[in-house]
Amino acid sequence: MAIIRTKDLTKTYHTRIKAEGLKAGFSSLLKPEYKDVTAVNGIDLEIEKGEIIAFIGPNGAGKSTFIKMLCGILYPTSGEISVLGMSPIEKRRSLTMKIGTVFGQKSQLWFHLPALDSFTLLAAIYEISDAERTRRVGELSERLDLTEFLTTPVRRLSLGQRIRCEIAASLLHEPQLLFLDEPTIGLDIVGKQAVREVILESNRDRGTTVFLTSHDPMDVEHLAQRTVVIDNGKIVVDASLEQLKREYIKERVIEISFVTPQRLPQLDNVKVTVEEGGLKVRLMVQDNLEEILRNLSTLEGIADITISHPPMEEIIASIFRKQGEVG
């Protein structure tokens, strides 16, 4: 069953054009000029219950606008949206009872007060009884390891601790659908891992559907089952992670360690990086993997050899590059 369904969803901003300089500023005051900027351009998308979707794209691609329309923050210019069987505009209150959000740039927590106080307010907003609130806060504290700093004012928490509290706040009412907009922004590796684990746990244990936007390729790699790439307000790729690697990346990385430094044979269409004085080499192979492996098999003194896909970061960059070339 589709939990999110959009049809020809479009959002256009009517923006004032501001020319440079004082004279242009005055003339714009008397005779303002406007232009229409289409942030989301006719998106059709269906997301099934229990899926984890990574919604990625370069800055200004329309990710935040799209997610904000799904949450009921922004009114679409045209098209249809159904989230959990409801229209976000007409049923905003009913819908927000069932969704959770973490917008990395905006906080639900009160800066001068402990997170526990913010949880009390959120419990009142989401109509959670006192006994139930105590149970859920206890459970989330354990899962997210919050107990130590639950009563510390938020302003004294580290960014990682604050984001964990934000995640707890968004899960307090046990949402069916979780929107995460840059949830790991600014976190260190340990913080990122902790956040990813909680998201996966929530998806696994409660069947929570997760809609994620992130600029961190590792978030996509660790969390997403399906990746939707958006550019200029349009979906350019909608594929599973495996498909993405298979169809959009023809490259493979061959890493070889030698016992003694070796000289490589002449290889066509291969980018070679030699490290540690020839003890390690890294080859970026296009579509001639078989031929390259045959040539490499003549080498002696190989200690280790691995063949892998390029990192997620390179995959995403490659998709954007290809789209740029097509465009």
Partner: peptide, 17 residues
């Protein structure tokens, strides 16, 4: 600043909140 987002995402009367 776009801070109204936080209130729009909560199931209660926006203005009162």
């Amino acid at each position: 600043t776009g801070e109204l987002d936080t209130y729009l995402l909560q199931p209660c009367n926006i203005l009162l909140s």
